[in-house]
Amino acid sequence: MSANTDSLHHSHDPGLKHQYEDMAQQSETYLVGMWTFLVSEVMFFGALFFIYTLYRWNYQQDFYIAHEHLDVRMGAFNTTVLLFSSFTMVMAVQAAQLKKRMNVMGYLAVTVLCALTFLVVKFFEYSSKFADHLYPGVNFNTDAVKAFGEHALENGHVAVNMNHAQLFYGLYFGMTGLHAVHIIVGIGILISLIRLWFNKADSVIHDYVPTELVGLYWHFVDLVWIFLFPLFYLMPKPH
């Protein structure tokens, strides 16, 4: 009897899909699905972080010398931008809960702008590395790395193993590159979400959870960067 009236009541909720008992069950199902995807992403990035740890463990000094060519200011700026974009994303989700459509679109737009800013900074970082031939391959600029090895450490004249230095740049471009691909995909998803809100699509205006799912993806991208930043830009000096 009680269950019957419940389902009658809920059938009026326009956000509820017919296969779910109620909104709570629907939301949990959506969220668990998204988290399952995110766990698969953790597996993907986790393996890369493991590879990084393994080589870093063995070639600490070579990695330190190679890393000195990265610009900490650019890395820190990008970290700030991504952390801020996570905040605007969460504010968009809050606005979706309050059904404030204009606010949702505004916060999502700011999130997209942050993502684009991140990519522009990344573009300049990559260009300077390409210009200096600091990428693995036959044209690798061994002189630049060698020159740095001579004054990077107190004990002077450190012989840098160029294979290890190239390994560092391989990992740098591989991991930050895959992270950048996630940012680009995220921009596509965010713009699609803005479009849905703009068109007052039933899928987003009656239920805030789809917006929250995009938020989860975006926070995950931020999460990966939280670890990439100290590992690549803030390597401690061997001492």
């Binding site: 969220l31 668990v32 988290w35 953790v42």
Partner: peptide, 15 residues
């Protein structure tokens, strides 16, 4: 949700 969120962390520990 809490369980699912911990699974990723546990995976990283395992690897």
């Amino acid at each position: 949700i809490k369980l699912w969120a911990s699974v990723g962390f546990i995976w990283v520990l395992l690897i």
